[in-house]
Structures are given as structure tokens and as C-alpha cells.
Simulated scan of single mutants.
Amino acid sequence: MAAKANAQDWANLKKYQNENAALNPVELGQKRTVFMGDSITEFWSVLHPEFFTNKPYVNRGISGQTTPQMLVRFRADVITLKPSLVVIMAGVNDIAGNTGPSTLKMMADNIFSMAELAKANQIKVILCSVLPAYDFSWNKGSFPAQKIAILNAMIKNYADANKILYLDYYSAMVDERNGMKAQYSEDGVHPNKAGYEVMAPLAEKAIAEVLSSK
């Protein structure tokens, strides 16, 4: 029964349904920012909640999600919230095969489609790098490091070509194996508090830059 229910809500549109409905309208002069992503985004509010405190930031990360799932829920979890800006970080779970095989082009196309949906609705966009990972604890032997580097290059090229800010967390967190530096993660994939403390000022700087631009 649970599996059937999950299949019926493949993109997990129910997760934030009540929170979206209860979210206060954007106040005059306020510039809401929505963070769209997977567990790396979702757990940011858990491990480093102060980043979100007293700011017009809305976390819409869902653990385990892939880019097609995010694309399906993008209207409900981003556009309808009427933000000024969306910060998109996605792709690592596609590389891990969480919802089946996927090419790098398929992943990139889904990310670019989210960006284009946002821009069509007058929402500014930040495209984030995928964080470094040498291997996945839940899918060992997949050695994602090279795929992550290629996907990041694809995202950066698209961002540059479309005048979108590319937020490079990767360079600040990568080690000599092209995995994540040990001090920033317990499992080599998800940031710990120290990892989020590296990401936070980079995100704040990017958000300020994009929101101040015309």
C-alpha cells in the first residue's frame, strides 16, 4: 500500500502542500528566495538552521530526489510561492541512479528546464554546482566524481550563456580525489555543519548579487 501511494505521488507533491498553503504572502519590499533541491538542501535547515532564521528564505529540498521529480513539483514548490529568486541545486541523486538510469544530458536538461520555467515567471535564478563526491554509501562502486565534474561544466556553460549566476560550492569543498573534503562531511556526500558553514557565505554573496541586479 505504501509503495502504491508513493508511486501515485512520485514527485512527493504532498510533502510541502500544507506548508505552501500556510505560507504568508510576500510582504511589500520583501524578496523571497526558494531553495530547490534534494537532501543536501533539505538537511541545511536541520544542521545549520541559523542560515534560514529571520530571512525570507524558503527551503524546498526533498531527500533522495532527482531532477525529473524536482521538475514535476517546480510549479507547486517554487512558482506558486512567488519568490524573487530560486536557488537550484540538483543532480547528485540522478548520478546515483535513484530513479533509474539517466544520462548527463537528461540531468542537465531537467535543470535547464527549471531555470527556464523560473525565468518565464519573472523569477531570478542561481544554478549551483553539484557538490563533490568520490563514492556513494548507498550505491558503492559507482565512482561519481568524473560525472559530477562533467555535469558541473555543463551547468556552468549554460549559466554563462544565459547570464545566470553559477554558484560554485564544488571548488571550495573538493579534495585531491575529487571527493568532498573529510572535514565537511561524515559520509562523503552530505555536508555536516562545517560544510554548510562553507556554503552559507557563498550563497549569501550570490543571493545579494543577483537580487541587487536589474
Rank of each mutant, 00 (worst) to 15 (best):
M1C: 07
A3S: 15
A7G: 00
D9F: 04
W10Y: 10
W10C: 00
L13T: 11
E19Y: 12
N20K: 02
L23E: 09
V26S: 00
G29F: 06
K31V: 02
R32V: 01
T33V: 15
F35Y: 09
I40H: 06
F43A: 11
W44N: 12
W44A: 08
H48N: 15
P49Y: 04
F52A: 10
F52N: 10
K55H: 11
P56R: 05
V58Q: 13
R60P: 13
G61N: 07
I62V: 15
S63W: 06
G64I: 12
G64Y: 12
T66E: 14
T67V: 11
T67H: 02
P68S: 14
Q69E: 15
Q69M: 13
F74G: 03
R75L: 01
A76W: 04
K82I: 02
P83E: 09
V86E: 01
M89E: 15
G91V: 03
V92S: 14
N93V: 08
I95V: 15
I95Q: 11
T99R: 14
T99C: 12
G100V: 12
G100R: 12
P101F: 05
S102Y: 01
T103K: 08
T103E: 05
L104Y: 06
L104P: 08
M107G: 10
A108L: 07
D109I: 00
N110I: 03
S113F: 00
E116T: 15
K119S: 11
K119C: 11
N121R: 11
N121F: 00
V125W: 05
P132W: 08
P132L: 04
D135R: 11
D135I: 08
D135T: 09
W138V: 08
N139D: 07
K140Q: 14
G141K: 07
S142C: 09
S142F: 05
P144Q: 12
A145R: 01
Q146P: 00
I148W: 11
N152F: 03
A153M: 07
M154T: 07
I155K: 02
A159H: 01
D160M: 06
K163E: 12
I164R: 03
L165D: 04
L165C: 02
Y166W: 01
L167F: 03
L167P: 06
E176W: 02
K181N: 10
Q183G: 01
Q183Y: 04
Y184S: 03
G188M: 06
P191K: 06
N192D: 13
K193P: 02
A194D: 13
Y196D: 01
V198S: 06
M199P: 10
A200R: 10
A203V: 04
E204C: 00
K205E: 09
A206C: 01
A208C: 01
A208D: 11
E209H: 07
E209T: 13
L211T: 09
S212C: 02
S213I: 08
S213W: 05
K214G: 09
K214Y: 00
